[in-house]
Amino acid sequence: MNLFGWLRTAKPHLDATQQQRLAQLPQPVALGDAALRSQRWVVLDLETSGLNLNRDQVLSIGAVVIEDGAVDFSQMFERTLQRAETKLSPSVLIHGLGPSAIAAGSDPVDALLDFMEFVGDSPLLAFHARFDQHMLARALKDSLGYRLAHTFLDVADIAPLLYPEALLREAGLDDWIDHFHLQVGERHHASADALATAELMLILLSRARQQHIDTPRALQARLSQWKRRKQAPSF
C-alpha cells in the first residue's frame, strides 16, 4: 500500500460522452494583432458560496459576448450548478441563490463543459478577474480535471488605465457604473453583473481605440506596463 496515496487528488469521474466533450474543447489562443473591434471577448461573472479561494464553490456562471464592437445578445450563458452539500455564506442575501435553487441546478460537470464550449478559444474579461479566474480554474480542475489556460484581463484594471482622470483606481463595479451614468437593471447575480461589466467594457474599448490601442495584444501590453509602474517602489 502506498502510504502517500491519500495525498493524491481523486480523478473526476466522467462518462464517455463527457470525456469526448472534454477532449474536443479548443485550445485557447493568445491575444493577437487583429483589430480590437473584431476580437470576441467572453465577459464572465461568478456567484460563489463565499469568498474563500480554497474552500468555497462556484454556484452560478453568467457570461455575455462582446464582438464587432457590441454585446451580442444571441450569445449569452447562464447556469446554476447543483451543489449537494454546500454551506452557504451570508452572500446568499446578495445573490439570492438559496438551497432550493442550488438543488435544482445543473450537474457541475455538464455545466462546466457547456461553459467551456461557449467560451471556445476566446479570452475572458471579468471585474476583479483574479477571483473569478481562480474560482473557475479550481472548479474546472475539481470537476473535469481540466487546466484553465485562457487569457484573463481585469476590467477593474483596464478602467483606471484608460480613465485615470476619473480618480477611481480602487473602485468597484458600481462606482464605474455611476461614473459613466450607465443604466443597468438587476444587479448582483451572475448574468446581470456580466452584462453590466460588458457595458462598461464597451466604453473602455472605445477609449482604447481613441488612444491608438488598436489590437488585443496592444491592450494587454499597455495593461501590463501600467501594472508594473503601479507596483514599482517609489523613492
Rank of each mutant, 00 (worst) to 15 (best):
residue 92 V to H: 03
residue 127 F to P: 02
residue 68 D to L: 10
residue 192 A to S: 15
residue 224 S to K: 10
residue 104 A to Q: 06
residue 131 F to M: 08
residue 82 Q to V: 08
residue 23 A to Q: 09
residue 85 E to F: 14
residue 121 D to C: 09
residue 194 A to K: 11
residue 214 D to A: 13
residue 44 L to I: 14
residue 190 A to C: 07
residue 67 E to G: 07
residue 159 A to V: 07
residue 205 L to C: 15
residue 162 L to H: 05
residue 234 S to V: 13
residue 207 R to C: 13
residue 223 L to G: 01
residue 97 L to F: 00
residue 75 Q to L: 11
residue 186 E to R: 14
residue 56 D to N: 09
residue 141 K to N: 13
residue 117 E to V: 08
residue 59 L to E: 02
residue 129 A to V: 04
residue 118 F to K: 03
residue 8 R to D: 03
residue 27 Q to W: 01
residue 135 M to P: 04
residue 144 L to H: 11
residue 107 D to P: 01
residue 75 Q to A: 14
residue 9 T to D: 14
residue 185 G to A: 10
residue 80 T to Q: 05
residue 185 G to W: 14
residue 223 L to Q: 05
residue 6 W to Q: 12
residue 97 L to V: 01
residue 63 A to S: 10
residue 65 V to G: 04
residue 96 G to Y: 00
residue 13 H to W: 04
residue 30 A to F: 02
residue 44 L to T: 13
residue 170 E to I: 05
residue 132 D to P: 00
residue 60 S to F: 05
residue 59 L to T: 06
residue 185 G to D: 13
residue 136 L to N: 05
residue 53 L to E: 13
residue 37 R to W: 12
residue 22 L to A: 02
residue 195 L to F: 14
residue 105 G to D: 00
residue 138 R to L: 02
residue 39 Q to H: 12
residue 171 A to V: 09
residue 120 G to L: 06
residue 19 Q to K: 09
residue 128 H to D: 01
residue 158 I to D: 06
residue 156 A to N: 04
residue 211 Q to M: 15
residue 112 L to E: 03
residue 98 G to K: 01
residue 206 S to R: 15
residue 60 S to P: 02
residue 217 R to F: 14
residue 112 L to N: 03
residue 116 M to T: 07
residue 98 G to R: 00
residue 71 V to Q: 09
residue 68 D to T: 12
residue 176 W to F: 06
residue 219 L to E: 09
residue 118 F to L: 02
residue 234 S to M: 08
residue 115 F to W: 00
residue 30 A to W: 02
residue 166 A to D: 02
residue 157 D to I: 14
residue 146 Y to R: 08
residue 163 Y to A: 03
residue 167 L to W: 10
residue 115 F to C: 00
residue 218 A to K: 13
residue 87 K to L: 11
residue 155 V to E: 06
residue 133 Q to F: 01
residue 25 L to E: 00
residue 119 V to I: 11
residue 210 Q to W: 15
residue 198 A to W: 13
residue 183 Q to Y: 08
residue 186 E to V: 14
residue 63 A to M: 02
residue 3 L to A: 09
residue 32 G to K: 06
residue 149 A to T: 15
residue 37 R to H: 15
residue 234 S to I: 12
residue 44 L to F: 10
residue 119 V to A: 04
residue 24 Q to P: 00
residue 178 D to A: 15
residue 214 D to W: 13
residue 73 F to T: 14
residue 21 R to W: 02
residue 215 T to Q: 13
residue 115 F to D: 01
residue 113 L to A: 00
residue 157 D to S: 12
residue 212 H to G: 08
residue 176 W to H: 04
residue 47 E to A: 13
residue 66 I to S: 01
residue 205 L to W: 13
residue 23 A to K: 07
residue 128 H to L: 02
residue 44 L to G: 07
residue 228 R to N: 05
residue 9 T to S: 10
residue 105 G to Q: 00
residue 158 I to A: 09
residue 142 D to I: 12
residue 36 L to I: 14
residue 136 L to T: 03
residue 84 A to M: 08
residue 106 S to N: 07
